[in-house]
Amino acid sequence: MDVGACRLCLVEIAGSNKLVPACTTQVADGMVVATTSERLQRYRRLLLELLFAERNHVCAVCVSNGHCELQALATNLGMDHVSFPYTFPKLEVDLTHRLFGMDHNRCVLCGRCVRVCWYVEGAATKNFSGRGAGSRIISDLNQPWGESRTCTACGKCVHACPTGALFEKGTTVGEMQKDRGKLEYIVTAREKKQWIV
């Protein structure tokens, strides 16, 4: 699905000086695409550093430590520090839901929770509010998650989330392992009528 949330999938297309996000660019006949180059890696690292600087990502005390896609990206792209000043915003942690928690400090606004909630579960509980640096993931009318009338407590958003922003209550440092396979299972079953266990 075309998303265009983070630009970490930037690629080079031969004959064009512009870097384009792979996720929103249509392939064309004869297109020559470079997915890794010194320049791309440099830009990706820059974007990644901005993601880290934007909120409060503290791997050492995170439920997803060791199982985090953001942390893994830092390793893969050779990010050994962040060269921008951290913004240290003051953000909420919503623990009102019976089963799950949402820590906005760890959210990268990728929107996977929103998309899985709308298009896989169909509940449309989650969405983005605001814009730019003020963007937040909300439930219903920006009410505490636990008071949402639409949430089915299915937990798909938790497993779609790449970081420790969405987690199961009761997990502590490094214990939250996401199972994206479950989401793939459901979607494959629905779209291809294949139940691949």
């Binding site: 709308w118 509940a123 449309a124 509980t125 989650k126 969405n127 983005f128 509010s129 605001g130 814009r131 909300i138 439930s139 219903d140 009318l141 920006n142 639409t150």
Partner: peptide, 10 residues
């Protein structure tokens, strides 16, 4: 969905 209305309004 309420979340859509809130998202657009903000």
């Amino acid at each position: 969905p309420p979340s859509r209305v809130y998202g657009v309004a903000t």
